[in-house]
Design a protein around this nucleic acid. Structure first.
Length: 674
DNA sequence: AGCACGCCGACT
DNA sequence: GTCGGCGTGCTC
């Protein structure tokens, strides 16, 4: 029997066979990529047709008929289907869930009133239009490009309708965005759509403003997970209909249908946010490359600190490297380490850093203090018995938040009131240990009472629009010192900011995570890059007990190439990515033995398959218990991506087979943290 | 994932 | 005597 094979949102690695509607017998291909409603179990579900007019895989008597075909809307285009199928295979995630999760929620559910004709609501969805752009507004002028920028724009644009991957390595403030803008300008002239990916939602408004300012007559939409459902739907449809000429979005936008796609930009391509950390654990950057390849268009990976993966590809000649080595109209900041060995620090601040802050205050310039911890102190400690505010549900410490007088777990959200007395020994002297943003904020208010201090972290920006409001205040010069976490490090442009202080970064120097140094280098470079972006000279002071560490020396010289070359050498010697490939089996359960049992069996079953892959012993992750659930993980490594993939495909059925309902497990291919 | 069926404890 | 706990099994 000839059937259509339909993907459904169920955790099963299979498609489902359905009898095709009579009217599609003559043109079966036009069914592929269409949304359909099908009977499933005792209910009905929305599915996507992936194959049409193929021989059934199950007995004829079990086959039911497709209920409805949504023929009033365009089918998902071939490149999106192919990217999603690839993602399902490569990341070993059920194909139906991969496909359906790429759609706006409204398109995943069976319409309430589902007759044979389109409902009013469905018709309204297709007819809806995004707000038309203001035709009358004047476009912001195109600035004169530097030679390096011109060469970059030219290189990208000259690869007309052929796949061409570029790494745009530009120093912070080096004018990467201007390159994107001028590439997009030409694409628009050619009648094409541009897809611009950004790592996080906070960065969409400012980039969107910049694009809107430059292209006032053009329809631009944003796509990210915090959009209201209706808005997301409208933006998605505008992309699908070709109405939106520019789509700016976070990782999920890589799946947006774009009939006239002309190029893809992945801004801050090194950023970990491009990797989804649950469900389908895809890398939007990697899928962007695949998509560009399928469509035969250029893809630009932009960063001041490219990922070592991308940089290795550039060095190996697989990607083309474009450099923006200097800041147009400004100088790079001077970066220096402050030796804190043997120094008395005041709430974590050295005298030299306080003096530098004072000097900026007197000159009416802004400073940024970077602390990668929110809260007051990462732990409340009893000096008499070494009690350290443990979380009852996680293997982690409760963080002291003084402004709310609470102890809070940053892993599970558990909160309790601050105790005055040690719960184990009754000692009344509990001391905050370590430094968070709150502590630095209050220390600064005390040390520099004239300074207007603004703290920016996840706690102060929880409210909608809070971050945008704060940015406006900074631009309006209503703030002297910013205290914040990495939220402040990325992409922001504050012209009066001339000093960046880094309070405590040493922790990342000596961890077991082989990617820690890459992350630290990127983070310090990004945050340092906030200083001196206009004509005012910038200075960056990094407090450290290891001021001569090679990583800090590379950061101070702002020599990415030297850092990356050294780091890649090390990776090659150790046989780590990008010179090998990883997959991580994660498991969690309420009881420790369940996790350990499962992983031990999985390792055994894997070894019995006798593939050329290395299976490490199961280990607990850094935080082994979260929210009362025990976690464990098992690393698999291979020098061959293909062999690793073949192994995972063979292993998967056994992972399913050995799991009981009490163990939750998932595979993470190309994990960022191992 | 849902949603069934199916076999053992405290309750109107 | 039931209502209901969540352990397996199935969905084209």
């Amino acid at each position: 029997m000839r059937v259509a094979r339909v993907a459904l949102d169920v955790p099963l690695c299979t498609l489902f066979d359905y009898a095709m509607p009579e009217e599609y017998r003559l043109a079966p291909d036009s069914l592929v990529g269409r949304r359909v409603v099908v009977p499933f179990g005792r209910a009905r579900s929305v599915g996507i047709v992936l194959e049409s007019d193929v021989e059934a895989h199950v007995a004829e008597r079990r086959i039911r008929a497709i209920g409805r075909v949504f023929d009033d809307e365009p089918p998902l285009p071939g490149d999106v289907l192919e990217v999603l199928r690839f993602a399902s295979d490569y990341y070993h995630h059920p194909v139906g869930q991969v496909l359906l999760n790429a759609l706006p929620q409204k398109l995943r559910r069976v319409p309430v009133r589902d007759g044979s004709r389109a409902t009013k609501a469905a018709a309204a969805d297709t007819a809806q239009r995004v707000t038309p752009p203001a035709e009358s507004a004047a476009a912001a002028p195109e600035p004169q490009l530097t030679g390096a920028q011109q060469r970059a724009v030219h290189a990208v644009l000259s690869s007309r309708d052929t796949f061409a991957p570029f790494v745009l390595h530009g120093v912070t403030g080096g004018g990467k965005t201007e390159v994107y803008l001028q590439v997009v300008a030409e694409l628009l002239r050619r009648g094409r759509q541009a897809l611009v990916l950004v790592p996080e939602i906070n960065l969409t408004p400012q980039l969107t403003e910049r694009f809107r300012g430059r292209f006032p007559g053009v329809t631009l939409v944003t796509l990210h997970s915090h959009l209201a459902e209706g808005e997301r739907m409208r933006a998605w449809r505008a992309a699908q209909d070709g109405v939106a000429a520019v789509v700016i979005g976070t990782r999920l936008a890589v799946f947006a249908p774009l009939p006239r796609l002309g190029a893809i930009v992945v801004d801050e391509e090194h950023d970990a946010s491009y990797k989804q950390q649950e469900g389908l654990r895809y890398s939007a950057r990697d899928l962007a490359l695949l998509r560009a390849k399928l469509r035969g268009v250029p893809v630009v990976l932009g960063s001041a600190t490219p990922s070592l993966e991308s940089y290795a590809n550039a060095m190996g000649g697989r990607y083309r490297l474009l450099e923006l080595p200097s800041r147009p109209g400004a100088r790079l900041p001077a970066v220096r380490c402050l030796d804190t060995r043997g120094q008395r620090l005041w709430h974590g601040l050295s005298g030299a850093l306080l003096e530098a802050l004072q000097a900026r205050l007197e000159r009416g310039e802004q400073s940024l203090l970077f602390v990668n911890r929110r809260g007051y102190a990462p732990v409340l400690m009893c000096l008499a018995c070494a009690w350290t505010s443990p979380c009852t549900r996680c293997s982690a410490r409760l963080v002291l938040h003084t402004s709310e007088r609470r102890l809070r777990c940053h892993y599970c959200g558990h909160e309790e009131a601050v105790t005055r007395v040690c719960p184990t020994c009754g000692n009344q002297d509990l001391t905050p240990a370590g430094h968070g943003t709150q502590r630095l904020e209050s220390a600064l208010r005390e040390a520099l009472p004239a300074a207007r201090v603004l703290r920016i972290d996840r706690d102060t920006t929880r409210r909608r629009d809070a971050f945008a409001t704060m940015q406006a205040r900074i631009r309006a010069n209503e703030v002297d010192i910013l205290v914040g976490t990495q939220m402040l490090a990325k992409g922001h442009d504050f012209p009066r900011l001339t000093l960046v202080g880094v309070v405590n970064a040493d922790g990342a120097l000596y961890t077991s995570d082989f990617r820690a140094s890459e992350r630290l280098y990127a983070q310090l470079t990004q945050v340092a890059g906030r200083a001196g972006r206009s004509e005012l000279a910038g200075e960056v002071l990094i407090q450290s007990n290891f001021p001569t560490h090679p990583l800090y020396e590379a950061v101070c010289r702002q020599d990415y190439a030297a850092f990356a070359t050294g780091a890649l050498d090390e990776r090659r010697q150790l046989g780590f990515p990008p010179y090998s490939h990883h997959a991580l089996l994660r498991a969690e359960a309420a009881r420790r033995e369940r996790v350990d049992d499962y992983l031990a069996r999985a390792a055994e079953a894997g070894a019995a398959l006798r593939f050329p892959v290395e299976i490490y012993d199961p280990v607990p992750p850094l935080v082994a218990r979260v929210g009362g659930r025990e976690r464990g993980q098992l690393l698999v490594q291979s020098s061959s991506r293909n062999e690793l993939q073949r192994f995972l495909s063979a292993w998967y059925p056994q992972l399913e087979g050995t799991a009981t309902r009490s163990v939750r497990w998932s595979l993470d291919v190309d994990p960022l943290e191992v």
